[in-house]
């Protein structure tokens, strides 16, 4: 079986070409063709000799997978479904907005985190995406040329697949890769602390932490991760970092009626984030099937925002996009997933 070169970093490409007895600079040429010129055929790489191309073609391929389905919202948001392994699917959401065009990419098939409010979690965990599968969502996007920003906020927990995420960011931001500024990339996490540290050490991309409750005991009722990595520990770790002016930390806060939207929560949030230069994104909750949670009404969100703003915090309310196609919730891939139920361990 041929090895897919798409998604390999420069060092990984070098290892491959050296194993064929080719010079190391062939790797730079390959990266240039694949990531800068977006060429998907080895035969089209005209600065490689015919002999080298034939040698490469014996062992390698460059394979991108087009989306198998797309849903378009009335607001222009598009949700693309990409097949991965057999019977597995992931989603990527394209969100155009005036001068910006953001793509929300997935990092895993399903998720292991089991958050109460998340549709993706209902699939269970099916597997990690490779860096190539993450980048495939970007380069195979019909609107690729229009993209201004990438957010790693689709299916899966990015820090639970941190090596592939870091490889994909390396390819996105390297001069031998797509050459993007890391300031155009944001990666979210629910707070897997060791991987979050690795991410902060090895990239300059922005970080978005899914907070959702400032109280340890209440957060664990909606986010199982809290039992292992409490939000207080995540915040303490972030405090240790001097992130500079270029790098942004934001906190995502989905508003649940009667659960995390009271004055008590606002006050505690202020205390928790005291002294951290950050932005808080308040997010309307779009109910998923069988959830016991309800979203806070817009007036309640604005009131919560005003409480935080009055204490000097930078707070935005994220505009809802693609509501009519459930753009943010993993519903499409969950429906498409053919589950093999009879081999679970329970």
């Amino acid at each position: 079986m041929k090895i897919n070169l798409f998604g390999l970093t420069l060092n990984q490409l070098k290892k491959q070409v050296l194993s064929l007895g080719l010079p190391a600079f062939t790797a730079t040429q390959l990266a240039d063709w694949m990531y800068k010129k977006q060429v998907t055929s080895l035969d089209s790489m005209t600065n490689l000799s015919k002999q080298v191309r034939e040698k490469l073609e014996t062992n390698y391929c460059i394979e991108l997978i087009p989306s198998s389905k797309v849903q378009t919202s009335t607001d222009g948001t598009k949700k693309y479904l990409y097949p991965t392994q057999i019977q597995k699917f992931i989603e990527a959401a394209y969100i155009p907005d005036a001068a910006r065009a953001t793509l929300c990419v997935s990092t895993q098939i399903g998720c292991k985190m089991g958050c109460l409010f998340c549709m993706t979690g209902k699939q269970g965990f099916q597997g990690n995406l490779s860096s190539g599968e993450i980048l495939n969502q970007i380069q195979s996007l019909p609107e690729f040329e229009k993209l201004t920003n990438i957010v790693y906020m689709g299916m899966g927990e990015p820090m639970d697949n941190v090596e592939a995420v870091l490889e994909s960011i390396e390819i996105m931001t390297s001069t031998w890769g797509y050459g993007w500024s890391p300031k155009r990339i944001t990666v979210s996490t629910i707070g897997i602390i060791p991987a979050m540290i690795t991410f902060l050490e090895r990239t300059q991309a922005h970080l978005a932490v899914s907070l959702h409750s400032p109280f340890d005991n209440e957060r664990r009722e909606i986010m199982p991760i809290q039992s292992v990595y409490p939000i207080s520990g995540v915040i303490n770790e972030i405090r240790r970092w001097e992130l500079g002016r270029q790098r942004r930390i934001s906190f995502e806060y989905i508003m649940f009626k009667g659960v995390n939207d009271t004055a008590r929560h606002a006050n505690e949030l202020v205390r928790l984030l005291n002294g951290i230069k950050c932005r808080i994104n308040l997010i309307r909750f779009h109910p998923i099937p069988d959830t016991p949670l309800e979203g806070t009404a817009l007036e309640g969100i604005v009131e919560f925002q005003n409480r935080l703003k009055a204490k000097g915090l930078t707070v935005t309310i994220r505009a809802s996009r693609g509501e009519d196609i459930f753009a943010a919730c993993g519903l499409l891939s969950t429906k498409e997933l053919i589950k093999i139920q009879n081999n679970t361990e329970f």
């Binding site: 399903g110 089991g114 949670l293």
Partner: peptide
């Protein structure tokens, strides 16, 4: 305690049976 798939399915059943989500504490493998 178990896989996310198990935790999510069990939690859904318990909630349907009237157990408040606040009474359900979970830990998933990862």
């Amino acid at each position: 305690c178990g896989s996310a798939e198990m935790v999510v399915q069990v939690r859904d059943i318990l909630i349907k049976k009237g157990i408040p989500f606040q009474n359900i504490i979970s830990e998933t493998y990862f």
